[in-house]
Amino acid sequence: MTFLSNIFKRRSSAPVARDRLQILLAHERISGGDGKDDLLAQLHREIMEVIKRHVVVDQDKVQIKLDRGAHCSTLEIDVEVPGLTDVKPGEKPTIQAASAPADAKKA
């Protein structure tokens, strides 16, 4: 049994590498120094400002992803927003929404 469980326990490392790269490159593409990516960085910043004006957002619950395709790039911003009741900034919301994704896409 130990033999079998050892086989199944051993995780292959390639998927870990792929996931790490995807997360890292999504960030690097946004903050990259060249003109095209500056626009995405700016969009990202301003969209976040607008969201923050209305709801309290936990920085850890924001997922930003930039996909560079052959014909167009996509900026995907996933923000987990706490209960969208009338909460003033700074006040701790009482209801936790499971997940309310807000996608901002740029073609």
């Binding site: 590498a17 790269l21 890292l24 490159l25 690097e28 990259g32 060249d34 003109g35 095209k36 560079r68």
Partner: peptide, 19 residues
């Protein structure tokens, strides 16, 4: 097929498309 090489390639692709 190795993380550091893929990361650097991504950076170079960005440069090829901009500079």
């Amino acid at each position: 097929p190795e993380v550091s090489s893929v990361r650097d390639s991504d950076r170079i692709i960005g440069m090829l498309d901009s500079t």
